[in-house]
Each structure stands twice: as structure tokens, then as C-alpha cells.
């Protein structure tokens, strides 16, 4: 057996026997990314809906900027959050740098534009279809925004899952603000980067398999939810 297949079979066995080191890294990854997506969603969904429904000066510029932020590079987010949280930074006193909360903040900042921009788009489409009816019923701006969020809830699930996929698979931001500290801030992506450079291919590959499976499962779940909702609710 060559090195590659050896590493691969070792990786598979680590995954299957639930290796504690691997398991710890996976759990931290999931905790950090889930928290960041919950945090970002709590802000991004209402803001996205409000941007779709409300009319205010400068709205066009805000939407354009939001869409531009979709391509935000993870390392730049990492750097910005690093500067905010570093000892000399404005939030340095909190002492969050190189802790999981710092990683949660960085990933939340990273996925916020994605969640807000996609939510805005979906709600804007729904608003276009039902604006006259909602106004006719006497619904104000906020009632309409909330009602439309409820109306597109199944699409929102897929948007949030996409946000989770982006968070859990990025490496640049968590690397910078987390520092990849063994057992404290080491997540799947940073561990893969480190172990690969160290030559510990089985652990890197094992984490790669888990990460790929998670991302695949998310995508399958997203399309299943969408299909089921389509069948049931039209």
C-alpha cells in the first residue's frame, strides 16, 4: 500500500472509531459555527427583510454594499476582528482574542452579508408579489416584513444552512482570531491546514472526510426541505 491509501484507511478508521482528538475538533467546529450562524441570523434575517420592504434614502447604496460584501474574503474578516479584539483594539479589554467566542464573532461577521443579502432578495421577490395585498389589508412596513419572513420560512432554512456551510468550511478568519490553539481553538479547517503541513495526513484526511460529509449533508438537507415545502405549500 502506498502512503496515500495508507493514510486514507487510517483516516477512515479514526472516523469510524470516533477518535477522541478528531471528535473534539469536530465538536468545537460545530459549536463555533452553529453559534455564529444563530448570532448572524438573529440580525441578518430581520435586517434583510426590512431592507426589502422599507423605503429610505440611501437604501440602494446599502443594498449594493451588502451584495458587494458577499465576496468578503475570510482572511480580511479575520484581520478586522483581530484588530478589534487585540489588546490595543477597542474591544481588547474583553480578552476574547484566541478564544472560541472570538471565532464565533469572526464567522458571524463573515456570514452576515450572505444571510442578509439572500434574505433581502427572497423577501423582495415575495414583497413584489404581495405588496398591494398587504397594503390593502392595512399592514404596515414592519408587519409586512415579518409576515413575508414567515411566508418564505422554508427558503430561509436553506439560506441559513448555506450560511452554516460557509462558516464551517472557512479557514482564514478562525485561524487569525482563534490562533489554532490545540484543544482550545482548533477547528476542522485549521487542523486540516496544520496537520497537512506537519505531515499528519490521517488526521487531516479524517477531518476532511467529516467536513465534506457535513457540507454534503447540509446541501442534501437544504434541497429536501425545499422540495417538501414546495409540495406541501406551493
Amino acid at each position: 500500500m502506498n502512503t496515500l491509501s495508507l493514510a486514507f484507511s487510517e483516516a477512515l478508521s479514526m472516523v469510524l472509531r470516533l477518535d477522541p482528538v478528531l471528535g473534539g475538533i469536530v465538536m468545537l467546529s460545530l459549536q463555533v459555527s452553529l453559534s455564529s450562524v444563530v448570532l448572524a441570523s438573529a440580525l441578518a434575517l430581520p435586517i434583510g427583510a426590512a431592507l426589502a420592504v422599507a423605503r429610505f434614502p440611501g437604501q440602494h447604496a446599502v443594498v449594493t454594499m451588502l451584495n458587494a460584501l458577499l465576496g468578503l474574503p475570510a482572511v480580511v474578516v479575520g484581520l478586522a476582528v483581530y484588530l478589534l479584539l487585540s489588546r490595543a483594539g477597542p474591544l481588547g479589554a474583553l480578552g476574547l482574542l484566541f478564544t472560541p467566542p472570538a471565532m464565533v464573532i469572526a464567522q458571524a461577521v463573515l456570514v452576515f452579508p450572505l444571510l442578509a443579502a439572500l434574505t433581502r432578495q427572497v423577501v423582495a421577490d415575495a414583497w413584489g408579489e404581495s405588496r398591494e395585498q398587504l397594503v390593502s389589508l392595512g399592514a404596515g412596513t414592519w408587519t409586512s416584513a415579518l409576515a413575508l419572513l414567515v411566508d418564505v420560512r422554508y427558503t430561509l432554512v436553506t439560506i441559513v444552512l448555506a450560511g452554516f456551510g460557509r462558516a464551517v468550511s472557512e479557514v482564514g478568519a478562525v485561524m487569525i482570531v482563534g490562533g489554532n490553539v490545540d484543544g482550545v481553538t482548533r477547528v476542522m479547517t485549521t487542523a486540516i491546514a496544520l496537520e497537512t503541513s506537519k505531515g499528519d495526513l490521517p488526521l487531516a484526511l479524517g477531518l476532511g472526510i467529516v467536513l465534506l460529509t457535513i457540507v454534503l449533508a447540509l446541501n442534501i438537507a437544504a434541497s429536501l426541505i425545499k422540495e417538501a415545502a414546495q409540495r406541501r405549500h406551493g
Binding site: 395585498q133 390593502s136 389589508l137 409576515a147
Partner: peptide, 15 residues
């Protein structure tokens, strides 16, 4: 409550 209502060509119903 509104004292006038409107029904449109394409009915708008919610999910």
C-alpha cells in the same frame, strides 16, 4: 380595521 377591501386578478394568498 379597513373599511374598504380589494380583490386582485391573481389572488394573493400566503403559505
Amino acid at each position: 380595521p379597513r373599511r374598504q377591501a380589494m380583490v386582485f386578478q391573481r389572488p394573493v394568498v400566503f403559505r
